[in-house]
């Protein structure tokens, strides 16, 4: 800068002008991706064979040998928690994918029909979205699992059937909003047909949003699954998820054994936060900025 420039003495004291939270750049994306890969590899690689029951070893507090301690059956809680986290993540991913597929189909149908005489279909689909949203998801999940019987597939179904509405709304809103955005109108004005606009402009935009919504849904799905498992409506002991492990620790807590509840729970929180962080890194990418 040339001579004589100075900063206004009290410039930094404006209430609205505190240092901005820095937007994460391209490097942040790679850190997020790396983090996610590490989490997944760790979970997939965690040994399952170490979960041997040995009742003489029950409720050992955390130590070097058992960093998470042992549970009521003397099983190593770290190995069990990692295996449980893997189940939780798997359920979360599959459920998020299934609900995204349902959401894209419903939202895409509603959004593309809304603008051309298909208003009735759009209306019915959106009322359906309202109706599903009008029910507390956990209660709906409880009803579904109760009626279908507890199993991996009914848990996934229960999550997917309650969570597709978010994606459906996003896809529909995005399609409708893009209809009047300058570059779409310009393409239409230049003689583009629906297929041209859809394949060359809309898909790329919607795909970014859907990807983000799907990733953001994973922690929701994990929460939902662990809540069901905690209520005893989720996964059985041999497929224990983190929710199941925490459920089994309830009586132990009353006896003063804190580790079977606290440590697997911390892992659950960490898992959700890691996926959230990944989603935050994906946010700029989903808007078309690297």
């Amino acid at each position: 800068m040339a001579e004589g420039w100075r900063e206004v003495a009290d410039a930094r004291s404006r209430p609205w002008d505190r240092p901005r939270v820095r937007a994460t750049g391209a490097r942040g994306v790679w850190w997020g991706a790396l983090l996610a890969v590490v989490v997944v590899v760790l979970l997939l690689g965690a040994g399952v064979g170490t979960q041997r029951a040995d009742f003489s070893q029950a409720f050992l507090p955390p130590s070097a040998e058992h960093p998470f301690g042992t549970d009521q059956a003397g099983r190593d809680l770290l190995a069990r928690s990692l295996a449980g986290a893997r189940v939780s993540l798997l359920v979360g991913l599959v459920a998020a994918l299934v609900s995204s597929v349902v959401g894209v189909v419903v939202g895409g149908l509603a959004g593309s029909l809304a603008s051309r005489g298909g208003g009735v279909v759009d209306g019915v689909l959106m009322r359906l979205v309202d109706a599903v949203n009008a029910l507390p998801h956990l209660v709906l999940g409880i009803v579904i699992v109760a009626l279908l019987g507890p199993s991996l597939s009914s848990v996934i179904l229960s999550v997917a059937l309650t969570h597709w509405t978010t994606t459906a709304r996003i896809v529909r809103a995005e399609l409708l909003a893009l209809q009047h955005v300058g570059f779409v109108e310009a393409a239409v004005g230049a003689g583009a047909g629906r297929w041209w606009v859809l394949s060359r402009h809309l898909l790329a935009h919607v795909a970014g949003r859907v990807l983000l919504a799907t990733v953001l849904m994973v922690p929701h799905a994990i929460m939902h699954e662990s809540a069901l498992s905690f209520l005893g409506l989720g996964l059985p002991d041999d497929q224990a998820s983190l929710g199941t492990i925490i459920e089994q620790s309830r009586t132990a807590v009353l006896a003063g054994h804190w580790w079977p509840a606290v440590l697997p729970g911390l892992l659950l929180v960490a898992l959700s936060l890691a996926v959230f962080a990944l989603a935050e890194r994906l946010r700029p990418v989903s808007r078309g900025r690297a």
Partner: peptide, 16 residues
């Protein structure tokens, strides 16, 4: 973080 913590777990921790 609090949002990422399931209420049943927070409850158990509080009980303990």
């Amino acid at each position: 973080s609090v949002q990422a913590a399931p209420p049943f777990w927070t409850g158990l921790v509080a009980v303990w």
